[in-house]
Design a protein around this nucleic acid. Structure first.
Lengths: 136, 136
DNA sequence: TCCTAATATAAGTTGCTACTTATATTAGGA
DNA sequence: TCCTAATATAAGTAGCAACTTATATTAGGA
């Protein structure tokens, strides 16, 4: 399957981008890296009309985007800076390009290439992972 | 508002593409125009594992795709031929291109990854090179 | 060491949406 | 005209996913 350990795939990316709140998050991060708290605050005002949005809700959205490979995280002190992950967006772009001309069929091989590169990178530098007691 | 009379917008397009069944429909139609019945039949077998899918269900999905501007319809007798609407896909492309500013765009990222993957593989195939495999 | 700030997770609720079956519509053939 | 084929719509249901509040985790400062 064209998927790496993060679960990144065109499927996951489209599923994640299917939610309007998450699209707003992506647009925010498109303006540059931001700590989770800033994202939550921005969305709070942005969606003030619809009753606002809580910090946990935003945290959960960020998790979905993370697992879809659409954003990156960088820990700095107690803050976590989120940014756009071009790799995830590339998977979407790739899916769209299949419609450009004759439609060549599944491009699983290419998606595998993306996943591979990402895996290698993760092994090199792992961004501060939260661990639960007794977790291996 | 960047919206035409059909209600087409990047928002509607992403919402529509957020569903895996609809993505399969798009991929099918990418192979060329098909009457609704053929789409329903193809999906029936494709999702046979998950209990199949009914004709009304497919008809409803086609409606969503239509309203999102992602497919076109052409009536011929009692049949309705559905095809990919490039305009709807263009709206998605457009949204993605907003992220191309500042850092390397999706396409550049992809090409970088492809190059990297090939390099990694070359190294892996060298008999004397020791590489750790699949630590995940 | 205790307190606070920043974020993530747990657990439970609810509304939306993708489904179902049943029926309406429409075109063409006998 | 009546019948059938192809598709769309109606109406109702069930499951999931996006929310909520409450709490846990972790880093850093006083």
């Amino acid at each position: 399957m064209s998927e790496d350990a993060t679960g990144a795939s065109a499927e996951a990316a489209f599923d994640a981008l299917g939610d309007p709140v998450r699209r707003r998050i992506m647009e925010l991060l498109g303006g540059g890296e931001r700590p989770a708290g800033a994202v939550a605050e921005a969305l709070g005002t942005l969606f003030a009309g619809r009753g606002g949005i809580s910090q946990p809700a935003v945290s959960q959205h960020l998790k979905v985007l993370r697992e879809a490979g659409l954003v990156t995280v960088r820990a700095e002190g107690t803050r976590r800076f989120y940014g756009v992950d071009a790799d995830g967006l590339a998977l979407v772009q790739l899916w769209l390009e299949r419609f450009a001309d004759g439609f060549a069929g599944p491009l699983d091989a290419l998606e595998t290439e993306l996943a591979r590169g990402k895996r290698e990178r993760r092994l090199a530098e792992r961004p501060h992972e939260r661990r639960r007691r007794g977790a291996a």
